[in-house]
């Protein structure tokens, strides 16, 4: 798990102007199975490695959506089919969807935060008898920045989408993703919520859900810090008492909230 395993790029799809999804297949032995919410350290050989959450898990195949923001993400965004990358993992905590059985599900994603939530939604759709109502609420910057548009699961899940800035062709909702919570169909005391996105969006969303009556213990959020070793040794991803590569990235809101209120933690 601490040594990168070679994976071959078998598919590459450009999602938005700065985001692409790559599908990886083990070149030899596969890593242990990933759970939704966990992440891998993915190497662009000769450039470096970055943490990427899995956006699809299909047997030994892994898919990662990568946004180009630096040298490594840029190299992975542009990687060609047939090339080999290194993968370490699985790392961190998952969404633990099984603990939400019998409840309404509220899944709230902001921007590229939809990537780690995608396998969670797919898992919920695959076993609908285990859950009550499924609400998937997505916020994006503009219509052009929305991920996975047109994928069949979005219609199956009855996804609601809003954007911060709309062009003239957009006929959907405009506003912060929290506005969608008011229109979602769920019974707060019987709800489990899953949130991923920029930290201010996570805080605003969790606060709104708690205000609506959702138990903070039933809200799980995915946090981001500088993951490096992936094994809880280097301390780069420390958030107070947590090492997010080991104790996160998925953390209960009851534990996360007081830590996120501390500046520069």
């Amino acid at each position: 798990m601490t040594v990168p395993v070679p994976y071959r790029v078998v598919a590459h799809r450009v999602d938005t102007p700065d985001t692409a999804t790559i599908v990886l297949e083990p070149a030899d032995a596969a890593l242990p199975p990933f759970a939704p919410g966990q992440f891998a350290m993915v190497y662009a050989f000769g450039v470096g490695d970055i943490p990427l959450s899995v956006c699809d898990i299909d047997g030994p195949r892994l898919a990662h959506t990568v946004r180009t923001v630096g040298a490594v993400s840029g190299a992975l965004h542009d990687v060609r089919i047939g090339r080999t990358v290194g993968v370490r993992g699985p790392f961190g905590t998952g969404w633990e969807l099984s603990e939400a059985e019998g409840r309404d599900l509220v899944v709230v994603a902001g921007g590229i935060g939809l990537a780690p939530l995608r396998p969670l939604v797919l898992a919920a759709l695959a076993t609908p008898e285990r859950y009550r109502r499924l609400n998937v609420l997505i916020g994006g910057r503009t219509p052009d920045d929305l991920l996975y548009c047109g994928e069949p699961w979005q219609a199956a899940a009855g996804v609601r989408v809003t954007v911060d800035r709309a062009g003239p062709a957009w006929t959907g909702e405009v506003g912060l993703v929290t506005t969608l919570i008011d229109r979602a169909d769920f019974e707060p005391p019987r709800t489990a919520a899953f949130i991923c996105g920029p930290e201010p969006m996570i805080r605003a969303t969790a606060a709104d859900l708690v205000h609506r009556g959702v138990d903070p213990d039933r809200i799980r959020v995915s946090l981001e810090r500088t993951m490096h070793c992936g094994t809880g040794h280097c301390g780069h991803c420390q958030l107070g008492p947590l090492l997010l590569c080991r104790d996160g990235p998925v953390v209960g809101w009851t534990r996360a909230e007081p830590l996120l209120m501390v500046r520069e933690l």
Binding site: G110, G111, G139, L176, G197, M201, A204
Partner: peptide, 11 residues
């Protein structure tokens, strides 16, 4: 509050 949050251009 929502408008101010959107001003941050979070995404």
């Amino acid at each position: 509050k929502a408008t101010r949050t959107r001003l941050l251009d979070l995404y």
